[in-house]
């Protein structure tokens, strides 16, 4: 009797434990579901669709069939001069904007990390461009840099500069890109300044004291103490900024309008144009995959770097 009862009891215990476990899971999923369902439907599903779409050809019309074209979209891509130009522009924009913005934000952070009056006021001022509406600030930027009447060129001509730059509409690619890059630094630097300020909080003050005792100059202190100590922050800022540059669209749209003559097109501009102007949805997704791979490379570098820093 006893021997047959025991398994029954433990079975009941196991059953109730299983039930409790089930309830626990149901409760947990009820917490996650509201966000996860929205996230899965509106983010995860489109991401998977983006990958699939890159191998298809479709004009978006329900009357026309969707056809599988294999890697044809990617073959077309590398024969497309517009794409090559967009890729070069996007990468060039990132390669120049990232270090300059980093230098500006690090410089600001170091200035604003000192014990000075009105420190928060200065920080707030420097930060404001980052939260200001892109449409509004590009509108004023375009007026300031208006080639014929803008105050910037008025000042330059007052200084005796002949051949005034025509900024966002200049035929010289460097000047056009330079105008956008200058704007980007102004817009982004406040955000990364805050990240650098947080990084500076983590620098051990004893190190500065030791450096001062050794008679290090301010420059040496910066070079041999601050910079090495900030390495994780710098690394993080590089990754964030690079991704931010790769996905640029609105800055170019509103400042150069990808002109003159499409000289300053960027990847996301091409994605948009291929989909909504040319209605080549598969082709547009192939461009998006190139953006995806660029971001993936940057992210993998970050993982690698974080790992090596933690070791």
């Amino acid at each position: 009797m006893q021997t047959t009862q025991r398994p029954a009891v433990s079975e009941a215990v196991a059953k109730s434990r299983k039930k409790r476990e089930l309830i626990k899971n149901v409760v947990a999923y009820s917490f996650i579901a509201p966000n996860f369902v929205g996230f899965a439907v509106f983010t995860l599903v489109p991401m998977v669709m983006a990958v699939a779409l890159a191998f298809l050809s479709w004009d978006g019309s329900t009357n026309n069939p969707i056809t599988f074209v294999g890697i044809q979209n990617f073959i077309d891509l590398f024969q497309d001069a517009k794409f090559r130009q967009a890729l070069i522009n996007t990468v060039a924009y990132a390669v120049i904007t990232v270090p300059l913005t980093m230098a500006a934000s690090l410089g600001l952070a170091i200035l604003l990390n000192q014990q000075i009056r009105a420190r928060n006021f200065f920080r707030t001022m420097m930060f404001f461009p980052y939260v200001a509406s892109m449409v509004a600030v590009t509108a004023v930027w375009n007026m300031l840099f208006n080639p014929a009447m803008g105050p910037v060129n008025m000042i330059l001509s007052g200084l005796g500069v002949e051949n005034l730059p025509r900024w966002s509409v200049d035929n010289n690619w460097f000047i056009c890109m330079g105008t956008v890059i200058l704007f980007s630094i102004w817009k982004f630097m406040g955000y990364y300044m805050i990240i650098y300020l947080a990084g500076l909080q983590g620098v051990n003050p004893d190190l500065y004291e030791a450096a001062a005792l050794d008679g290090a100059s301010p420059w040496q202190r910066f070079w041999y103490v601050t910079l090495p100590q900030l390495r994780p922050t710098t690394f993080f800022v590089t990754v964030m900024l690079t991704i931010q540059c790769f996905k640029v669209y609105d800055i170019f749209l509103m400042i150069t309008n990808f002109g003159p003559g499409g000289k300053t097109r960027v990847l996301v501009g091409n994605i948009y144009e291929a989909a909504f102007t040319s209605r080549k949805f598969g082709y547009s997704s192939a461009i998006a995959m190139v953006l995806f791979v660029l971001v993936l490379i940057v992210t993998l570098v970050q993982f690698r770097g974080e790992k090596s820093m933690n070791e």
Binding site: A50, V268, I271, A275, L291
Partner: peptide, 17 residues
């Protein structure tokens, strides 16, 4: 997906919506 820019999947998302 946190680092993945919306621009990568905005087109299929638009088609789905």
């Amino acid at each position: 997906t946190i680092a993945m820019p919306w621009q990568v999947y905005m087109v299929p998302q638009f088609m789905m919506m």
